[in-house]
Design a protein around this nucleic acid. Sequence first.
DNA 1: GAGTGTGAAGCAGTTCACAGCG
DNA 2: CGCTGTGAACTGCTTCACACTC
Lengths: 212, 212
Amino acid sequence: MNSFTNRIPDAAVRRFSLYLRYLEDFERSGIRNVASGVLAERGGTTAAQVRKDLSFLGSFGKRGLGYSVAELTGVLRGVLGLDSVWRVALLGAGRIGTALFRYEPFRARGFHITTVIDNDPGKIGTRLGDVTIRGEHELESALQDDRTDLVIVAVPAAVAQALVDRVVAAGIRAVLNYAPTQLRLPGDVALRNVSMMVELESLSHALARLRR
Amino acid sequence: MNSFTNRIPDAAVRRFSLYLRYLEDFERSGIRNVASGVLAERGGTTAAQVRKDLSFLGSFGKRGLGYSVAELTGVLRGVLGLDSVWRVALLGAGRIGTALFRYEPFRARGFHITTVIDNDPGKIGTRLGDVTIRGEHELESALQDDRTDLVIVAVPAAVAQALVDRVVAAGIRAVLNYAPTQLRLPGDVALRNVSMMVELESLSHALARLRR
DNA sequence: GAGTGTGAAGCAGTTCACAGCG
DNA sequence: CGCTGTGAACTGCTTCACACTC
């Protein structure tokens, strides 16, 4: 039942990433079938949660046996959009931007950083890996020429919003934000935030509670 | 009512980080009072959400006027544990670890990276900023000597779990994980994950849906 | 009057429990 | 017999609505 017609809860989608990671491990180890409980154990959830999550995608488990690792891997890749290559633009070639650029798993998963933008005159025209860094004034033309699907924001908070407004105006529909600010953008643009400070402060809160 | 006796929802705590950021902006701009609606607008939530969140901390808003920026800033700093300095150990001095080490806002917020561990013999004994990189075999003694409160994990997934087990055994109660794996650890240890791939794949899912 | 504080209602994600299939 | 798939119960966060106060 319930093929991929309906919306899938965001929390479930994020767990799919984890499941996929573990399935790939299992595949490498030559394991051919896996039960919900095993996946749960590995991913820090419960068996019921795993089954419920997977039920959003259809029902292809085998009762008494579990799920085919190969089949499930394929389904998850498909639903996560990992069967196509996504063209990514990186805004900001500072320390964080550079570390992201060189992060191997991105490319392995089909995310190709084809465009790098920075406004430091000393960087414009230099290369990061196989990509030439371009200036901010070239933003729109670069996004268009490179047929960008997705933008990673790694610029200082103060300039992030203005830049993202231009990115959205240029038709981009997915933004991954590393800048420590809450970006405001239209509802039809997908936004995910990766915030070092928020997570760290949440830990700090937990520690402060313990200490009392 | 409802002082800081009760547990505060995690979602609210994460929003506190955002509110605090904006309050600090307001403070710099010389704004002395702020209404829930203003904070909501800035942080991408609703006024009701802001008031509900703040009500977990007590009630010190002024009806008809809003909240005192200075007072609220102080309260949030306190509840987030930002009024003390936290001593942080960084595991892994690779590209991501190095970028994190140099990330200025950490220090500004009272998170001091006092310890850096890496198992690359070429790195051990060299310096990262003002800290000397130490080998993995010194992990326990380093955590103890440096009175570490919190550990940031920035090592490859394959070695993360084993290292964290030792960290937990050494008495650390808060872990920020950048490794692309789900760490398994006791319930009394606070864990937060910062995952590049999970967020990116969630965007990829959103894009794939759009495209259909 | 403007804006807080908060019970109550609404909604979403999680867990339970069990029928049903391989 | 083991393990899936799923409605039903539950839990917890969010939104609403309004009495209350500065």
